[in-house]
């Protein structure tokens, strides 16, 4: 499939999956997975990052539109989108010439795990800090971050296992 067409499908697929299915899970009353962040993991690495940054911003904003959260999702998603390159260099030791051949699923599981966990934690922490928007319930922010991260990661690894099997 054409790669840009695939990205558009991924964009809307993740948006609607998040808004209509995952936002309504509310495990134990309030724990939701935020699986839409895998857009950042799956977007191919390219030299020009403007379209990537812009599309993550739009995805975040789209989720904000549906869940009435202002721009919190856009803000936190954009941060991991921007810092992605730094962590790729840190964990996978890639240089600019490797970008075109970089594929997350062909990397060893350990490195991939570190990378995904770090980005998910950063995103969730920023998201819940803004969603709370005060310094009163810090412990709650950390708890929410932890539970949602676990939830998101379980879904991500299950999903990646399933989808990689079929190919």
């Amino acid at each position: 499939m054409n790669s840009s067409l695939r990205l558009i499908f991924l964009f809307f697929g993740l948006l609607f999956l998040q808004v209509f299915v995952l936002n309504n899970i509310l495990f134990l009353g309030h724990i939701n997975p935020y699986l839409y962040i895998i857009f950042v993991f799956l977007y191919p690495l390219k030299e020009n990052r403007i379209p990537f940054l812009f599309s993550t911003f739009l995805l975040g904003l789209g989720i904000d539109l549906f869940s009435d959260s202002g721009g919190i999702h856009a803000f936190s998603l954009l941060i991991i989108a921007y810092t992605r390159l730094f962590f790729i260099k840190l964990y996978f030791r890639k240089v600019t010439t490797d970008y075109a051949f970089f594929k997350l699923k062909s990397e060893p599981f350990g490195k991939r795990f570190n990378y995904v966990v770090t980005l998910t934690l950063i995103h969730h922490l920023i998201y819940f800090s803004f969603a709370n928007f005060s310094l009163n319930n810090i412990s709650e922010v950390f708890l929410n971050t932890f539970f949602s991260t676990v939830f998101t990661l379980i879904l991500y690894f299950l999903g990646s296992y399933l989808f990689n099997k079929t190919e």
């Binding site: 940054l53 911003f57 904003l61 904000d64 539109l65 202002g70 856009a74 954009l78 921007y82």
Partner: peptide
């Protein structure tokens, strides 16, 4: 890239603060 990133973050922050005040939430709802 960094400047573009900053610009988008400022837009997002603008939306966040607008959303929190009762009378201004025009954009993202």
């Amino acid at each position: 890239y960094f400047l573009f990133f900053l610009l988008l973050e400022f837009v997002a922050l603008f939306f966040i603060f607008n959303n929190l005040s009762f009378h201004k939430s025009k954009f993202i709802n």
